[in-house]
Design a protein around this nucleic acid. Structure first.
Lengths: 192, 192
DNA sequence: CTTACCATGTAAGGCGTTACATGATTCA
DNA sequence: TGAATCATGTAACGCCTTACATGGTAAG
């Protein structure tokens, strides 16, 4: 999975629009793309150093009004690199959900545990779905005037579809389990 | 994301039902759970060594009919470990799709590239969806008689929901882009 | 004056991949 | 005899996380 060093392109992508510090970048990621990408300082700062050394980003004159801040901007080479990456084929997406492994391989654990996993999963995804709906509402209002944000919108749309699917699956799975329990009623090793 | 060492639990989960060699395990994973988990030999064999050293799995007497095969079985301690894992809370699932990053951060690349990404994504997920549908058909037939395979079915169901969502999203996104192109028609930096 | 936040980093270590190395067996 | 598959591993390296280290500033 981790093959392409997403970090560097996310950084370049953000710097393509604004001059930012490492701390700023972390915040931007936290608020804007949390649902499909995250980064830690342990990866961010070394990557910034590397990008600068490679000439893909450059230090801006620090405003030096007291606080230490290292501001970075993207270079022409950086823009080319970003464009090249954006045009090259995307890696295949993988679904690696812990819950599926627990369902599949932990099949001999209690039914109660399975139900608990599904319920946690369901609640989490209901919440995420609500957030996506909220984003969409806000975006729709903004986009009436500014036709940009199209790509932002498309990513939110993806989130809505995927989280909706999670919710639908969890509900269906819980319903199936309930039906099983009815007909099966307390048979064998599985204690409810 | 990578926090819990899924590999070890997948191995234990497979060994909970059969005695297998490393090679067998790899094959089982390849045919049965490819869509939500995969492993490489570089991870598999060292993990087997570790699990044996920890007493969670044990070497079975090799049948020694020529070929070298190391067969492993799960121990009682291994079963306890597996059960403990299966009962503990599942990690939060993350969607980390390369295509979303390219959409979001490569927003200044050509519209043609975006469309190509979406089409590739769409075709891939149509194919996956078809596989899930096939699995479901087979499973339904088998489950008439054997009521086991329930958890297998639930995982396939998840795949169906998720891949269906991917397909729906990609189609909607492509439709939106097409509409944009109509009204916008070749304006600005984006060359179609 | 202390808490919260701003801000930048390093070190250790785990997870996971790819490439390489080796050799036996089966089948055309 | 040569290719495919069976079968087990190691080495190197990259990604990423967690925990730690350091210090400044704003606000109550």
């Amino acid at each position: 999975m981790a093959k392409e060093n997403r970090a560097r392109y996310v950084i370049l992508g953000l710097l393509a629009h604004e001059i930012l510090s490492g701390y700023d970048i972390k915040k931007r990621i936290g608020t804007r793309v949390r649902y499909f990408y995250d980064i830690s300082y342990g990866q961010l700062y070394p990557e910034l150093t590397r990008l600068e050394r490679e000439g893909l980003i450059a230090r801006e004159a620090a405003s030096s009004e007291g606080r230490v801040r290292k501001l970075y901007s993207i270079t022409e080479a950086g823009r080319r690199e970003l464009e090249c990456w954006a045009g090259s084929p995307a890696e295949e997406e993988k679904i690696q959900y812990d819950i599926l492994l627990k369902l599949f391989f932990g099949a001999d654990c209690s039914l109660r545990a399975i139900r608990r996993h599904l319920e946690t999963f369901l609640n989490r995804n209901i919440a995420k779905l609500a957030v996506m709906a909220e984003y969409e509402k806000q975006l729709k209002a903004v986009m009436e005037e500014h036709s940009c944000h199209l790509y932002y919108w498309l990513t939110v749309l993806c989130g809505r579809h995927v989280f909706q699917a999670h919710v639908a699956w969890a509900e269906e799975a819980l319903a199936i389990l309930e039906k099983m329990e009815m007909s099966d009623d307390g048979e064998r090793g599985r204690k409810s």
